[in-house]
Design a protein around this nucleic acid. Sequence first.
DNA 1: CATATACGGAACTATTCAGTTCCGGATATG
DNA 2: CATATCCGGAACTGAATAGTTCCGTATATG
Lengths: 208, 208
Amino acid sequence: MSQTDLDEPKPRLGRKRDHTRDPEILDAALEILAETGYDGMTIDMVATRAKAGKATLYRRWSSKAELVLDAVACLKAGEIDLDALPDTGTLRGDLVAMIKTPSMRDAERKLKIMAGIVSMIARSPEMATAAYAALVEPRASVNRVLFARAIERDEIPADSDVERLCTIGPAMAAYRVLMLGRPVDREFLEDTIDGVILPAAGVRPGAE
Amino acid sequence: MSQTDLDEPKPRLGRKRDHTRDPEILDAALEILAETGYDGMTIDMVATRAKAGKATLYRRWSSKAELVLDAVACLKAGEIDLDALPDTGTLRGDLVAMIKTPSMRDAERKLKIMAGIVSMIARSPEMATAAYAALVEPRASVNRVLFARAIERDEIPADSDVERLCTIGPAMAAYRVLMLGRPVDREFLEDTIDGVILPAAGVRPGAE
DNA sequence: CATATACGGAACTATTCAGTTCCGGATATG
DNA sequence: CATATCCGGAACTGAATAGTTCCGTATATG
């Protein structure tokens, strides 16, 4: 979705290309979204932050809603290669390795973006779909791989409810940021792994 | 906060009382909040829903923000008596008994109200405080009592991180409703108790 | 029955902001 | 150097809505 559309056989004369500013604009939109939420955000704010004109935004997106939808959808772009995940040999090792990953690093930002659009999700199915695909599903699929490996390794029971296990981490992190207003730091994440996720997975406390 | 202020020594002549309509209005505000979120909600909507005039609302609250703040704060009113919680003799029994409680019944409504104000929480410390006091803390304190009993009973280790255990249930429920858009039904709650909370608390699976 | 009081409802004002239009300037192409 | 194309910016329009004012009515009190 979005980005410099590479159709148009011959852009003959003129300036550089089409819509070169898209990334900056979408990024500005995400920043404002995280800071003030969907309703608090104005098109002027986004334009100013991206050092663009409001007209430029409307040349590319037909409405505020579409801009935000596109911005959220583009978060999915930097998706993780599921085949290149850390493989340490233990479930705990894999989970701990994940929290040092850059995609985890900006977890807090993503959660704030989520906070900015939750109220919209109930009203707009498109937004619900986009948010799910960009913010919820990628995280779950990473975890799915990790737990699947642990099952192959006989580290956890083969009949584990992987879907449930996958949601524990995201749920605890989201609650921490959105409801408690506390940071998702390394200590919290490790405590959650050792104190909640691994016990729920059936890994014995001492069994490293 | 709010409700019929009972000062004024002698309301001599006139109608019945002061601000009799407060409860209906606050309730209407909460309904609209849950349905459309803070920004989607208009004062006219609330007035209409409560069959009141807009002027009546502004006679009592000086702004939309104060009305919502008061409405959220009043949720705390129907707080639970911590000494009258179900006491079944086991942690699992207590937790399961809690999900049949009326205060748990409207958990989903409360979560939707929360969704309606999350984006505000970041912008307004007052709202953050009110939401915490009305929606987060009451639930946590119920759980605290249950886990404290389990420790007294030697059912779970005395050095358990009760604060962490208290947040698991609310976190899983919030994620379920707000992010996944799925219902918090009895099955989900029981699965969460058996599959996440009890293992995290260190209760052995079979040990009923 | 008389009256002070609060309420419901409608009409009004002011502001904010989504979306539009227009123009001067930058820039790559030929 | 000429020109087609896109961009930034500012000015504008229109709709929605927060907040205000006013009035007719219902009602409890005396």
